[in-house]
């Protein structure tokens, strides 16, 4: 999959060198994030996720390979103007107030001076920290700093968003809020790369998930298609003819579970009706997502 307008990485290699040895971290990473797509990045500690994010953001210089964003080099100013980044921990002058910090970030991001105050106020309101806007960052809790981090990344409505553990330290309300914000960005057409250890979170918000292990992408799982619904239908063992079910669904069975792809919810009802009519005992129907935990256990 290649696209103009998204994030594209090809053959990315990165090693950390010291005078005694060279430690390869990324060993030929390929990845794509299309506009309007939310891609999760998972992997064990030391897999190279942070290094990959750092290369994408231009903090590290790759040894080999190419990174292009919207078909251009990732360090071009025009690309950066449309890039948002939420680090795992927001570090800034702790004597600054939340509002002053966001004003500075907005101005740096190229938000017109006349719009800065309104946008800052709107983001503070949206993230639920308007009441703490005049407090110093040093007085903020971890969760509040995380919200400020989201504010600074989204204030200029970027097209390419890189999130590193955006929900870490957030309370359940904050997690839901971040989930909504990611959905809004996707709706807006932004390409989002989400680095997280929280598999449940990845499963809920991502369209696709990449598993990075040993410096390589070892799995690329589609969790949901933009225009299709994946459904898992479990049938009572011995109650169905696998060949008949295969003909109805157009896809082979996996033991007593049928994983099918349909266009609408009405199609799910139709498929279940046909299966029941063929004599199959349907005992469970649910939307299907990849077994991230299984992948993680198998690979980590």
């Amino acid at each position: 999959m290649t696209q103009e307008g998204g994030v594209q990485v090809r053959g990315l290699h990165k090693a950390f060198k010291s005078w005694r040895r060279e430690q390869p971290v990324l060993k030929g990473v390929d990845l794509d994030v299309a506009p309007g797509e939310v891609v999760g990045l998972i992997g064990p500690n030391g897999a190279g996720k942070t290094t990959l994010m750092s290369c994408l953001l231009g903090f590290l210089h790759p040894d080999e390979g190419t990174i292009s964003i919207d078909g251009r080099a990732n360090d071009e100013l025009d690309v950066r103007r449309r890039t948002g980044f939420v680090p795992e921990r927001v570090n800034f002058d702790r004597r600054e107030t939340g509002r002053a910090f966001l004003r500075y970030m907005a101005l740096l991001a190229g938000v017109p001076q006349s719009e800065v105050d309104a946008r800052v106020a709107a983001m503070l309101e949206r993230l639920g920290i308007a009441g703490a806007a005049e407090k110093r960052l040093g007085q903020y809790s971890r969760g509040m700093l995380q919200r400020v981090g989201m504010c600074q990344a989204l204030i200029h409505e970027p097209s390419f968003i890189f999130l590193d553990e955006p929900t870490s330290g957030l309370d359940p309300n904050g997690v839901l809020l971040v989930r909504d914000l990611i959905a809004e960005q996707k709706q807006r057409g932004a390409a989002v790369l989400l680095n997280s250890h929280q598999l449940a979170e990845i499963e809920k918000v991502c369209d696709r998930v990449l598993f990075l292990s040993g410096g390589r992408i070892t799995h690329d799982e589609t969790l949901r298609h933009v225009d299709r619904i994946m459904v898992a239908i479990t049938m009572l063992p011995g109650s169905f003819d696998p060949a008949a079910v295969g003909r109805i669904a157009g896809t082979p069975m996996q033991q007593n579970v049928l994983i099918a792809s349909v266009e609408t919810e009405r199609d799910i009802a139709q498929l279940v009706r046909e299966l029941v009519d063929s004599g199959a005992g349907v005992i469970d129907v649910r939307r299907h997502t990849a077994d991230l935990e299984g992948i993680f256990r198998g690979e980590a």
């Binding site: 953001l57 231009g58 903090f59 100013l77 025009d78 950066r80 103007r81 890039t83 948002g84 980044f85 680090p87 921990r89 927001v90 570090n91 800034f92 002058d93 970030m105 740096l108 991001a109 190229g110 600074q152």
Partner: peptide, 14 residues
């Protein structure tokens, strides 16, 4: 060292 530079370097600024 404090990590503030990373927030600046992703901004459109040479």
């Amino acid at each position: 060292s404090s990590g503030t530079l990373q927030l600046i370097l992703v901004k459109p600024l040479n």
